[in-house]
């Protein structure tokens, strides 16, 4: 039964065989880190402070990431090791989980604002949740556990960095009494580390995939 279960899980792991799963997530995280940096460090009155800038930036980033993903899949992966179309029947489960997570997150933020909690403290938990998401993609690839360990070490390091240094990354700006400069800096660094680790890990996977596979010869 275990072997059958392992077979059933192989197509899901195949999605990231070329590192595109990590590249997509990593580029997204790096993109939002870049936007966060521009938003926090641009002078007052800059276009980067407008809400429309976020939507425009996210839209352009999504198109770029989609094109990178599609390009790698259609030009490299499908030609070498084949095409897979995934089932989309469980979209409602994903939606339900997203709604529950959003509701819990909102409730947490509400409680934090009522009790004047320091939101830079749960950055460690946030980082570990991100690490768990990464582990889901790793499968049985051992070297990726080293990448995950580097990320967890980075999160732990961010959690113990001096407050002044962390606040400097957020330009010593607080958005609200809840989102202090320290909290913003800590989350920004965590997101940046996540994006960097995923892009490096995805790039290594893609490089290995290209060097270890080749397209089958076309028959005349």
């Amino acid at each position: 039964m275990d072997q059958v279960q392992a077979l059933l899980q192989r197509p899901a792991l195949y999605d990231n065989i070329d590192g595109t799963g990590e590249l997509v997530l990593g580029l997204g995280a790096l993109g939002f880190s870049l936007f966060g940096w521009l938003n926090l460090h641009a002078p007052a009155g800059s276009v980067w402070h407008g809400m429309y800038a976020l939507f425009l930036f996210a839209g352009v980033m999504q198109v770029v990431i989609y094109l990178v993903h599609k390009g790698i899949k259609s030009r490299i992966t499908y030609r070498r090791t084949g095409f897979v179309a995934y089932r989309t029947g469980k979209a409602w489960v994903v939606m339900a989980v997203a709604v529950v997570v959003s509701a819990l997150g909102s409730a947490g933020l509400f409680m934090a604002s009522r009790r004047h909690w320091d939101l830079s403290v749960p950055v460690l938990l946030f980082g570990l949740v991100m690490a768990a998401l990464y582990i889901r993609m790793i499968g049985a690839v051992r070297w990726k556990w080293a990448m995950c360990s580097i990320y967890v070490a980075a999160v732990l390091a961010i959690a113990v960095l001096p407050a002044d240094l962390v606040e400097a990354f957020a330009n010593h700006q607080s958005i609200s009494p809840l989102l202090t400069a320290k909290a913003l800096g800590a989350y920004w660094l965590t997101f940046l580390a996540y994006g960097a680790v995923l892009v490096i890990s995805g790039s290594i996977s893609l490089w290995l995939y290209i060097h270890q596979t080749q397209a089958p010869a076309q028959e005349a």
Partner: peptide, 9 residues
């Protein structure tokens, strides 16, 4: 586990 796949996969 999938909707469809090709022969190569």
């Amino acid at each position: 586990a999938v909707e469809s796949a090709d022969f190569l996969y």
